[in-house]
Amino acid sequence: MSDLPATQSTGQSMVALGELKQFVSIMIGKQLFGIPVLQVHDILGPQRITRIPLSPKEVAGSLNLRGRIVTAINIRSRLNMPPYEGDHEGMSVVVEDQGELYSLMVDSVGEVLSLDEAMFEQHPATLDGNIREVSTGIYRLDKSLLVVFDVRSLLRFQGEEAA
């Protein structure tokens, strides 16, 4: 991550707490991401996934979550990242969008973070388009930066690879 541009909005120090928002933290590669906790339905370990032939490359398949059919989305494919090559099996965050459940397959899921609004910032102009497209902005954490996913746009990839 390159140096952040202008910090005009950050005159407030960390002491002055703004509104707190909670995010489920996610690791993909070396980058930390977050999904608003209110949108998260479930966190799943490895699942048996049914492949769906002819589906877009981002769709890993579908799975049965307590009687509901959930479409599994491979976030790495979605972000045009190389496949995961870690030694442990990935995890999934189940989110709901317009009444449908989607399971977002990520490398690992961390704890829920309460973040101060004041730490939120727009994308740097130089941010990679893949990520810019699916996120709302960035939180400056002490040791790292957390990219906030916009679930709706994350799930909008129709037509790109539509069979």
Binding site: T50, I52, L54, S55, S62, I69, T71
Partner: peptide
């Protein structure tokens, strides 16, 4: 028969999906 997720609706070969007796999802 359950409808497939909106992102899969354009695959005309499938009319829906369902959960089988053994709990697996099937197209």
């Amino acid at each position: 028969v359950k409808p497939v997720a909106p992102i899969l609706r354009n695959i005309t070969l499938f009319s829906g999906n369902t959960i089988l007796g053994d709990g697996s999802v099937i197209m």
